[in-house]
């Protein structure tokens, strides 16, 4: 889909043109080539939250590293905030959270934030004040004096987010920001993102978590095997009529009544049937006519998930992992 088809007035925060990346690995005799990205065109508008979705190995991290010039593109170009990422003034306005934030272990959380803050030009009491603010925001006040080597994965992730935010970035780039966080942290982080968005920060999130995409992002892109399959505003997706599967629960005693129901995707022994949303109404009325006791009906996936799976043409994936649900 051509991204420029989406009409917006905002200027571009990130402008990606024909971006390709080929990894060459292996030794001389057994060279191996991976086409991680294949000619990606993408615009990310200012003051919006963009969610990039894709399976493992789709090329999401590669895309972010190319944007940050940690990798050099095989072809194509990237413009960030109207300039080049090589410029200090551009990097001054960017916050970056890597996939696995890793810090040299000999520092405390506070010292790390002070260090990254001073790289952003803070000093003296302004720096201390800013560090306190961030520690409050990421709920790391009590552990700030501990060495990073004693942190849990989630604590590391929090410090990682803290260092990304410390420079009051105009553009925040996060590679899977929710990984490793507990449910409370997850919610806190979502609130932080929503607040940032309100304050006018542009967000670029790589994520697997569809719920996050649905609640935070304004637009999503779907990357599959190195190509951008779809880019669309979230409102359009939620309105769209991509079929979602539903699960119909019945008493286990009534399981025999389920046999022979048309359109069903899967049947479970203890009672229940999975049907496509397209035939939900018909199936329900059929069950009523059979006098089967329907205990409940629930959607098996969100609209976004269905859209995502549809886009990567992986409808088949849906059934298999769901077989075990009670």
């Amino acid at each position: 889909m051509e991204p420029t088809a989406v009409m917006t007035d905002s200027p571009c925060a990130i402008q990606i043109r024909g971006l390709s990346k080929t990894y060459k690995t292996g030794f001389w005799f057994t060279p191996k080539v991976t086409h991680a990205l294949k000619g990606v065109h993408l615009d990310i508008y200012e003051n919006q939250a963009f969610g990039l979705m894709g399976l493992n190995g789709a090329g999401k991290t590669t895309l972010i590293k190319l944007v940050l010039a940690l990798l050099r593109p095989t072809a194509g170009s990237v413009m960030v905030l109207g300039g080049s990422i090589a410029q200090r003034s551009v990097r001054q306005q960017i916050g970056y959270l890597p996939e696995l934030p890793y810090f040299s272990k000999q520092h405390t959380g506070r010292e790390l934030l002070e260090y990254f803050g001073s790289l952003h030009g803070f000093s003296g009491s302004t720096l201390q004040h800013r560090v306190d603010e961030i520690l409050e925001l990421i709920r790391m006040r009590s552990a700030a004096g501990l060495k990073v080597s004693g942190y849990s994965k989630g604590m590391l992730q929090r410090i990682g987010i803290g260092q990304a935010l410390i420079g009051k970035p105009k553009l925040l780039i996060c590679d899977e920001p929710m990984s490793g966080l507990d449910p409370v942290g997850y919610k806190e982080m979502r609130d932080i993102f929503i607040d940032l968005k309100k304050a006018g920060t542009t967000l670029f999130l790589n994520t697997h978590i569809l719920d996050e995409v649905e609640r935070v992002c304004d637009r999503i892109g779907i990357l599959h095997e190195g190509s951008l399959k779809e880019v669309a505003p979230i409102s359009k997706i939620l309105e769209s009529s991509v079929p979602v599967d539903y699960w119909i629960d019945v008493d286990s005693g009534e399981a025999p009544k389920l046999s022979g129901i048309p359109f069903q995707e899967a049947v479970q022994k203890n009672g229940g049937v999975q049907v496509s949303g397209l035939v939900l109404a018909e199936t329900l009325s059929l069950l009523t006519s059979r006098k089967a006791q329907v205990k409940g009906v629930r959607p098996l996936s969100s609209q976004v998930e269905a859209y995502f799976l549809n886009a990567i043409g992986a409808q088949a994936h849906l059934n298999r992992p769901r077989m075990g649900t009670p």
Binding site: L68, L70, R88, S89, R91, Q92, I94, Y96, P98, L100, P101, Y102, F103, S104, K105, F116, L119, H120, G121, G160, Q163, G167
Partner: peptide, 21 residues
């Protein structure tokens, strides 16, 4: 010691993404 943290474990990403040449 620092090769392990900076290069192998990629702590260097965080420095280079900052406004630091």
């Amino acid at each position: 010691v620092t090769y392990t943290t900076e290069m192998d474990q990629k702590a260097i990403f965080l420095h280079l993404a900052k406004p630091l040449t």
